[in-house]
Amino acid sequence: MSGGTAAATTARVGRQRTAAAAGHAWSADPYADALRAGRGPLFLRRADGWLLPLDVERWCAEADAADLEVLRRCEGPVLDVGCGPGRLVAALGALGHRALGIDVSEAAVAHTAGRGGQALLRSVFDPLPGTGRWGTALLMDGNLGIGGDPPALLDRMAQLLAPGGRLLAETVPYPDVDERALVQVTDAHGAPGVPFAWARVGTRALLGHASAAGWRADAEWSTGGRSFVSLRAK
């Protein structure tokens, strides 16, 4: 291994370890409490006080028309990364797909199981079953932000998918957004969770990251005020 290759590998592993540790912040109580209740308000809060509302009610409902349009593009066994309360895992089962959800929140995994879906309490950066064999992976509901490092997350998704496998990702509905920040999950009472790194990525920004990492874009679309991208692994 050349010095340049070794340095790149070390940097990538370091990014993944940092992202894996940050991911466990989603097990914090405000998020778990909202999932158990099935409603918000719940927010991501930046250090400067900016709040991003989280759509807990939609996550806890059944899959909607925009979700189903994404799920109809799934091929083979499907891994839902950051599955939350399991609406997509349940919908995939109803469509006849073999699906597994992963999440770092015990409440999310329990909710998914209660819907009849399969889910594991894992970070995407943990060892996972089916590595290198998944036909499709999902990064929905802002989960491109996991770890606060989109290139590291794309590297990990490429490891999980089979060659030519499909990544279906939901992007921020502003194409050029490419933000990284330290955030906390917080509720209406301002009860803060553990700080962690997060990212927000628009379609054009994601396509730039994906192209640099060797992914091939094969579709992009918007519906119901939400934006999506389909990428193919090398």
Score class of each variant (00 low, 15 high):
2 S>V: 09
2 S>T: 15
5 T>M: 15
5 T>Y: 03
6 A>S: 10
9 T>Y: 07
14 G>Q: 11
16 Q>A: 11
16 Q>M: 14
21 A>F: 08
23 G>F: 01
29 D>R: 15
30 P>C: 10
34 A>D: 07
34 A>R: 08
35 L>M: 12
38 G>T: 07
42 L>S: 07
43 F>R: 13
43 F>G: 00
43 F>T: 10
45 R>H: 04
49 G>S: 08
49 G>E: 10
50 W>G: 14
50 W>C: 09
50 W>R: 15
51 L>E: 15
52 L>H: 13
54 L>D: 00
56 V>L: 10
62 E>Y: 01
68 L>G: 01
68 L>V: 10
71 L>A: 02
72 R>C: 10
73 R>C: 02
73 R>W: 00
73 R>G: 03
75 E>M: 08
77 P>V: 05
79 L>P: 05
81 V>E: 02
82 G>H: 10
83 C>T: 13
85 P>Y: 01
85 P>L: 02
85 P>F: 05
86 G>E: 07
91 A>M: 12
92 L>T: 02
97 H>C: 02
99 A>N: 03
100 L>Y: 04
101 G>L: 10
101 G>W: 02
101 G>C: 12
102 I>Q: 01
104 V>M: 10
104 V>S: 10
106 E>M: 11
108 A>V: 05
111 H>Q: 15
115 R>P: 00
117 G>W: 13
120 L>R: 09
121 L>H: 14
121 L>R: 13
122 R>W: 04
122 R>C: 11
123 S>C: 13
124 V>D: 01
125 F>V: 01
126 D>S: 05
127 P>V: 08
128 L>Y: 02
129 P>M: 13
129 P>A: 11
133 R>L: 11
135 G>H: 05
139 L>M: 01
140 M>T: 12
141 D>C: 03
144 L>P: 06
146 I>Y: 11
146 I>E: 07
146 I>G: 03
150 P>W: 06
150 P>A: 03
153 L>K: 01
153 L>M: 01
154 L>F: 02
156 R>I: 00
158 A>T: 05
158 A>K: 14
162 A>I: 06
163 P>S: 09
166 R>V: 09
166 R>S: 12
167 L>S: 08
168 L>D: 09
169 A>I: 07
176 D>R: 14
177 V>W: 02
179 E>F: 03
181 A>I: 06
185 V>T: 12
190 G>M: 03
193 G>P: 06
193 G>C: 10
193 G>H: 06
194 V>A: 13
194 V>R: 15
195 P>F: 01
195 P>L: 07
195 P>H: 04
196 F>G: 02
199 A>S: 11
199 A>R: 11
199 A>Y: 00
200 R>E: 08
202 G>S: 09
203 T>K: 00
204 R>G: 12
205 A>S: 11
206 L>W: 00
207 L>C: 12
210 A>M: 09
210 A>D: 06
211 S>H: 13
213 A>E: 05
213 A>W: 01
213 A>K: 10
213 A>Q: 13
214 G>T: 06
218 D>A: 14
218 D>Q: 14
219 A>S: 14
224 G>P: 11
225 G>R: 15
225 G>V: 14
226 R>P: 00
227 S>D: 14
231 L>M: 02
234 K>Y: 07
